[in-house]
């Protein structure tokens, strides 16, 4: 679901060209280029270029449309060259996959920041710092756990006593979330539904506007 580049009629519509040169958008495009060209040693120039063109197109679509679905699609697509690189690597350590997961979330955050700069949005530095701090914590903890999983996997210990309850717990959290979402969901034709950037109906003229209505 795309959102407009301007919510207010007084504002000129923000051009996609201007949106693409904002720092998060430029970073997202650069990251896409780097990741897509990362498969160059394994699949050759032609294959890498095809991956790059599709990757850039998906990232561009995500940035210009402001759609979360397009953002997830573009990010998921980048997992293809990453998977190719990881599978082609010699050691095939789980740490690489954990880093790929963090990259997934980081790239998604980057795209989400491009959404925040839409409609002439001004993003404060503290928000960027918060995102980076969150990703840092996430990255560190993931790598530590991945190393732990990797080392435990090398032993003969049975880890199912930990993983199975964790999986069941996670599924329960998902089920609870589903219940919350179902309970709070508004109908398709409900006027209260709101999309970012959507212009809402202004309040009707009342007595505070027109003294003749008093």
């Amino acid at each position: 679901m795309s959102e407009p580049h301007s919510q207010n009629p007084g504002e000129k519509e923000m051009r996609t060209r201007d949106l693409l040169v904002t720092p998060p958008a430029a970073l997202a495009l650069a990251a896409t280029t780097l990741v897509c060209m990362g498969g160059l040693p394994f699949i050759g120039l032609a294959g890498s270029l095809v991956i790059l063109v599709i990757g850039l197109a998906l990232t561009f679509m995500a940035i210009s449309s402001g759609s979360h679905f397009a953002a997830v699609l573009a990010t998921a697509y980048l997992m293809l060259p990453i998977a190719l690189m990881l599978e082609s690597a010699t050691d095939q350590s789980p740490v690489g996959w954990a880093v790929a997961g963090v990259f997934f979330l980081g790239f998604l955050s980057c795209l989400q920041l491009t959404f925040a700069t839409r409609r002439f949005g001004r993003v404060s530095d503290t928000v960027v710092a918060n995102e980076l701090a969150g990703l840092g914590v996430l990255g560190f903890a993931s790598v530590v756990l991945a190393v732990l999983v990797s080392s435990l996997n090398a032993t003969t210990l049975d880890l199912n006593w930990l993983l199975v309850p964790l999986t069941i717990g996670l599924l329960l959290v998902g089920g609870a979330g589903l219940a919350v979402a179902a309970a709070s969901r508004t109908g398709e034709h409900d006027k209260r539904r709101w999309k970012p950037g959507e212009r809402m109906i202004p309040p009707a003229i009342g007595a505070e506007d027109d003294p003749l209505l008093r």
Partner: peptide
């Protein structure tokens, strides 16, 4: 994000993200 009527416009930005 601020929605304004056509009688006014922003001099900087009507949309800001902060923490």
């Amino acid at each position: 994000e601020l929605q304004v009527s056509a009688a006014m416009e922003s001099t900087d930005s009507l949309h800001r993200v902060t923490s």
